[in-house]
Simulated scan of single mutants.
Amino acid sequence: MFGSLPVRERCGSPTETLISAPRTSQPNLFQSLWQDFQIIFERDPAARNWLEVICCYPGLHALAVHRISHGLWHRQIPFVPRFLSHIGRLFTGIEIHPGATIGQGVFIDHGMGVVIGETAIIGDYCLIYQNVTLGGTGKELGKRHPTLGDHVIVGAGAKVLGNLEIGNHVRIGAGSIVLRSVPNDCTVVGVPGRIISRSGRGCPLEHGKLPDVEGQIIRTLFDRIEELEQKIQKLH
């Protein structure tokens, strides 16, 4: 219909293979905390020494509080897990429900405004920037928050909403809103999120150079309209 209009893929083709079954358990508490601490030096060039990281990284503090509250949550201790998560939110600006399952080596960079829902599952070595929401879409019961695979990057301000599966090594661009599941090794940008690359793992996501998917489509439509107008004028 639109001639040379590029085809953009919606997130989550039913024929794609998504991530493996959600993890149901977490590694040892101290092992997880150590991995959370070490990964900061690998991913943040501003991390200069261990004292600075321990004292000045709210993402690390939020994860430490969460891992304690999560253990209490699974022991079905009332009130205390939610209260601990609330205290963590007051001091870090990061809200993680104690029911959320988070793998090891996760790095929440800056972190202010991050919200992670009760049934969210985050795989190992994920990178989450500020103002990210891993939330639900309504008042449905059961699993209602996203499942992230391993080595996922979620850009600043991105929203991943609903019971979705985000594959391993997926990159979600800043400001994107993802409403459908995403296969492994994809890059997703836009509102709603669209797959723009399947180049596989190891491809860096440059948040300052994200493609304007909607803008490209609109420009293509304008070019097509202009071409059709010229053809009509020649007919006259």
Rank of each mutant, 00 (worst) to 15 (best):
E227A: 14
W50E: 01
Q31G: 14
L18E: 10
P78F: 10
T15N: 08
V152M: 11
M112P: 07
S32D: 10
Q233I: 02
K143H: 10
I54Y: 08
T137N: 06
L164G: 05
L228W: 11
F79V: 15
G162F: 06
L18N: 00
R194A: 07
L235F: 08
S13R: 12
V170E: 03
G155Q: 08
G155A: 06
H110V: 05
Q38R: 15
L210M: 12
C11Q: 06
L51C: 01
L63R: 12
K209V: 03
G136S: 13
L127T: 12
L84H: 07
R23G: 09
Y57W: 14
G93Y: 09
L72S: 02
D223H: 07
F83H: 06
T15C: 00
L5R: 08
G202M: 02
Q26C: 07
F83Y: 08
G142Y: 01
Q130E: 11
E95Y: 03
I217H: 03
P6A: 08
I68R: 00
P6S: 14
R180Q: 14
D150N: 15
G99M: 03
S85P: 05
H74M: 11
V132K: 14
R43K: 15
I172W: 03
G117E: 06
E206S: 13
G193R: 04
R194S: 12
G190Y: 04
R171K: 15
E118Y: 00
Y57N: 04
A47W: 07
L60N: 04
Q76F: 09
E118F: 05
G117L: 04
F2R: 11
G59D: 00
F83R: 11
V132A: 13
V65F: 13
I196R: 04
Q26S: 15
I39Q: 06
D223W: 05
E42H: 11
C126Y: 04
F41H: 09
V7N: 07
Q216H: 03
G71W: 07
L235N: 04
F37V: 05
S4W: 10
G142E: 00
A21L: 12
L29Q: 05
N184M: 09
V106I: 11
P204R: 15
L148E: 02
I121F: 03
G167M: 07
Q104F: 01
I218M: 14
